[in-house]
Amino acid sequence: MRNVIGKYLDTIDALKLEDRMLTHNTLILGEEGSGKTNLACRIRNFVIDSNVPTLYMDFANSHEDEVELRYKDEHFNYIRFDESEAFDKAFAKLVADKKHIYMAVDPKFFSNKREKKSKLSKVISQQALLDDYYYFFHDIENLNGFYTKFEDFLLYMLSFANLQKHGLTFLAQPHQTFENPHLKLLFSFLYVGKCSNANYFNTAILKTLKKNKFYYQCRTAYPTLLFNDIKSSMVKIDEYVPEL
Rank of each mutant, 00 (worst) to 15 (best):
Arg2Glu: 02
Asn3Ala: 02
Asn3Ile: 01
Asn3Gly: 00
Val4Arg: 01
Val4Cys: 05
Ile5Glu: 02
Gly6Cys: 00
Lys7Leu: 06
Lys7Asn: 03
Lys7Val: 04
Tyr8His: 00
Leu17Lys: 08
Glu18Gln: 03
Glu18Trp: 00
Leu22Glu: 02
Leu22Ser: 02
Leu22Gly: 00
Leu22Pro: 04
Asn25Lys: 03
Leu29Glu: 04
Leu29Arg: 08
Gly30Lys: 07
Gly30Glu: 03
Glu31Pro: 03
Glu32Gly: 05
Ser34Trp: 07
Thr37Ala: 00
Thr37Met: 03
Leu39Ser: 08
Leu39Asn: 10
Arg42Trp: 01
Arg42Cys: 07
Ile43Arg: 03
Asn45His: 13
Asn45Asp: 15
Asp49Thr: 07
Pro53Trp: 00
Pro53Ser: 01
Pro53Asp: 00
Thr54Arg: 02
Met57Ala: 00
Ser62Pro: 03
His63Arg: 06
His63Asp: 04
Asp65Phe: 12
Glu66Ile: 06
Val67Phe: 05
Glu68Asp: 07
Leu69Arg: 08
Leu69Ala: 09
Arg70Asn: 07
Tyr71Ser: 04
Glu74Asn: 06
Phe76His: 10
Tyr78Arg: 00
Arg80Phe: 11
Phe81Met: 11
Asp82His: 09
Asp82Thr: 07
Glu83His: 13
Ala86Asp: 12
Lys89Asp: 15
Phe91Lys: 12
Leu94Gln: 10
Val95Phe: 13
Ala96Cys: 11
Asp97Met: 14
Ala104Lys: 13
Ala104Ser: 15
Phe110Ile: 04
Ser111Gln: 07
Ser111Arg: 05
Ser111Asp: 09
Lys113Gly: 01
Arg114Trp: 10
Lys117Arg: 11
Lys119Val: 03
Lys119Leu: 02
Leu120Tyr: 00
Lys122Ser: 03
Val123Asn: 05
Ser125Lys: 03
Ser125Ile: 03
Gln127Glu: 09
Gln127Lys: 10
Tyr135Gly: 07
Tyr135Asp: 10
Phe137Cys: 00
His138Trp: 04
Asp139Met: 11
Leu143Phe: 06
Leu143Val: 04
Leu143Ile: 09
Asn144Arg: 09
Asn144Trp: 05
Lys149Glu: 12
Phe153Asn: 02
Tyr156Gln: 08
Met157Thr: 12
Leu158Asn: 12
Ser159Lys: 13
Ala161Pro: 02
Asn162Phe: 06
Leu163Ser: 09
Lys165Asn: 05
Leu168Asn: 01
Ala172Val: 00
Gln173Cys: 06
His175Glu: 07
His175Ile: 02
Gln176Glu: 14
Glu179Asp: 11
Asn180Ala: 01
Lys184Ile: 01
Leu185Cys: 04
Leu186Phe: 09
Leu186Ala: 05
Ser188Gly: 11
Tyr191Gln: 07
Tyr191Phe: 14
Tyr191Val: 12
Val192His: 05
Lys194Tyr: 12
Lys194Ser: 06
Lys194Thr: 07
Cys195Thr: 15
Cys195Asn: 15
Cys195Leu: 07
Ser196Asn: 14
Ala198Ile: 15
Asn199Val: 08
Asn199Gln: 11
Tyr200Glu: 12
Phe201Val: 11
Thr203Gln: 14
Thr203Asn: 13
Ala204Met: 13
Leu206Gln: 15
Lys207Phe: 10
Lys207Leu: 10
Lys211His: 13
Phe214Ser: 15
Tyr215Gly: 14
Arg219Trp: 12
Pro223Ile: 02
Pro223Val: 05
Leu226Thr: 03
Leu226Cys: 12
Asp229Asn: 12
Ile230His: 04
Ile237Gly: 13
Ile237Gln: 14
Asp238Pro: 08
Pro242Asn: 10
Glu243Gln: 15
Leu244Ala: 10
Leu244Val: 13
Leu244Phe: 12
